[in-house]
Amino acid sequence: MTSVIETSGLTKTYGAVRALDGLSLSIPRGGVYGVLGPNGAGKSTLFRILLGLIRPTAGEVQVMGQPAGDPAVTRRMGSMIETPRYPPYLTARQALRWLALAHGMGAEAETDRWLARVGLTEAADRKVRGFSVGMMQRLGVAAALMTRPDLVILDEPTSGMDPPGIQEMRSLIRSLADDDGVTVVLASHQLLEVQRVCDRVAILNRGKLAAEGKVSDLTASGERLRLSATPLAEVIAVLGERGSVQDDAVMASIPRAEAPALLRALIEQGVDIDEARWVGADLESVFMTETSSVEGDRP
């Protein structure tokens, strides 16, 4: 697995605040990689360092084998950091044309095609001063992709979008990775969307790496046995602290190997079991688990 981004001991401080605290991370080439974390976890700081907008206080960072911020590398990257803004006197088409010129591109920028791909064809000749946040996001994504980058960094790409827009954006991001071979690194607070679109995720907390891996592995590690049974009190008595009641069922946090013995024990206790099935953890619960330990310490 070759890496497109490698960080080692990456640290960034703003006065007394450590936005990144010795972060070591390896992001593989290809696919969609999610960077998650609560506000202030260091996601945007990481992205800004990767794009060369700010310099790290300490540590190493390489993007596509070169130091971050090297123009040779940044020219192969597309990005959208937070909600992008444009000079208000420009139309959407003019904004892309301006950026194409700034990037040394001519007709090959295919601005109209990218406007169509993000669903802005009808608004192409409207001044951006009247755009909603969602439309700005779409324009930002078009600007990031127009240069045909090898690596795309998107910070909250679906922020401010309506549900159909989110779905379109998810399809676009997936097709970039699957059809165009682009590596997409994104940050989002919409964990369900991340779970649906990302292959791997890193969870940051207070500038440190809290968890990292394939989405399927992270969610599988938190799987539990869901038992619909009567009486529930008897099930809880058998499970002790490993069981909890949730929606008229008991969630048992036990290894798979222990399941047959548990079921036998429950039957012997006279418990009627209506249903027993394994339930994987969703990304939200993984996220909450990984980030809640120090949440209370937040200033």
Partner: peptide, 17 residues
């Protein structure tokens, strides 16, 4: 001052010195 006012430096700094 346009790129400071409209916060557009980040759109163009990545691809030029």
């Amino acid at each position: 001052a346009g790129d400071y006012r409209w916060e557009t430096w980040r759109l163009i700094t990545a691809r030029n010195s």
